[in-house]
Design a protein around this nucleic acid. Structure first.
Lengths: 233, 233
DNA sequence: ATTGATATTTGACTAATATTCAAAAAAGGA
DNA sequence: TCCTTTTTTGAATATTAGTCAAATATCAAT
């Protein structure tokens, strides 16, 4: 009865995780477009029908994968915010975490890019879409908190640039990086290492532009080392 | 013979334009995913078989649409570069042109975003893919020329930030804008007007960060008005 | 104008794959 | 052991990209 229901629920969750991680692996190997539901069914050793009890459509599955990645990111962003360091170090930590995630799971690029398109949302369930939006907001919310920490600490001059504008600028730089990596590296002249240097430099220039202290003698590399050591994916 | 061949070639081109503009309209109305080749065939009043004589796959058609948009952009970028104005005004003109294009043809967002994915390239013909890369390079090449104009005129300090890094930073801001507009406007809290303000402000902050003169008294709005008047889509 | 050759167009057909749902199997409870 | 309820299954359906043999149109030569 109750015991049974608990076990059932747990097993349901385990199976959902199995499906998601298997899908992630298949996408990593072959790309999202060549993932077929029946291949996935074979890989997890369940029937297609069972997959469709977890996910109403293939797009729904995609959004579920995005929710997983974004919530991992949200968790890490929160960890970054908690680190006992000046606010400028912590916003930079946000970038470092993004770079670490990009290194660790490149297939996330594809998944999130695809999942950020209205034609996908339309075919996903409302709950899952809302979960994704909520997770995104948890991420941007955490960055906003860091901005407020900075304002409170006097690291950031008030009134010059709005919170939303800062969020947009920093986020754009990373989106640009994702797109650059996914589209152009090893196809055009630019290499991955160059792209990483460029993203860091532009990010710092924006921080300087916002007047985010300390502007002058501040060692990006040292801060990066600190966060790489502290944050564990 | 020759006369005939000329006419044939012209008609072939006209039909290709018809197919592309019709596809663009259908995508604008319903999105790329719900564009079917047979709907398109009906709309242009030719058979599916004929469509497939112009475009080997649906992805090839998509890339062809991207080539159209990117080459329009390349043309406008070149026009901006030729305007008789200080270099800083002209890089800013690049942003203004992008905003104008975004206002005029929002469906281009979808098209270019989709077209910038390797899984699409794999299914397009090599020639069309190369045409797309070439057009992108014409765009970035023009911006690089403006950067060199700036270096030559002493508007930009040499050696601080590399050409590639500047290109990346400015381009990221606009990619971020595209993505924001397409995904989140009218779904999340931020409005289109706010997004436009944010993109302009961050773009200018980067220019300032690169040390692009004149940094101090420089009126973005006035420059925008000039380019909006001069440049005709 | 007629003809035969060549080029183009057509749309019914094939293939791939997401999604459904009736039947079968398993689990639960008496 | 048997009946009920829940879950799983995978063959069947639906959609749509892409093909190709047959039909149609074009053209140069007579």
């Amino acid at each position: 009865m109750t015991v049974t229901r608990e076990r059932r629920k747990r097993q349901w969750g385990e199976r959902e995780s199995l499906i998601l991680s298997t899908a992630r692996r298949l996408i990593h190997d072959k790309g999202f477009l060549s993932l077929t539901m029946s291949d996935l069914a074979t890989a997890v050793e369940y029937s297609v029908g069972t997959l469709y009890r977890h996910f109403e459509t293939k797009e729904d599955l995609l959004v579920a994968l995005a929710v997983q990645s974004i919530s991992q990111r949200a968790r890490l962003f929160e960890a970054v915010r908690q680190v006992n360091r000046p606010s400028r170090d912590r916003v930079y930590g946000i970038l470092i975490v993004r770079l670490m995630l990009a290194e660790a799971s490149p297939e996330t690029f594809d998944i999130e890019r695809l999942a950020s398109s209205p034609s996908i949302w339309k075919r996903a369930t409302a709950e899952r879409y809302q979960a994704m939006v909520a997770m995104e907001q948890r991420c941007s919310g955490t960055v906003i908190e860091i901005i407020r920490d900075a304002l409170a600490a006097g690291d950031l001059p008030a009134g010059q640039v709005s919170e939303a504008e800062i969020i947009f600028g920093l986020w754009s730089i990373t989106v640009g990086f994702h797109r650059l990596v996914q589209s152009f590296v090893d196809i055009q002249q630019v290499g991955l290492a160059d792209a990483i240097t460029a993203v860091k430099k532009n990010y710092c220039l924006l921080l300087d532009g916002y007047g985010w202290q300390p502007v002058g003698d501040w060692d990006a590399q040292e801060v990066e080392d600190v966060f790489r050591a502290k944050i564990d994916l």
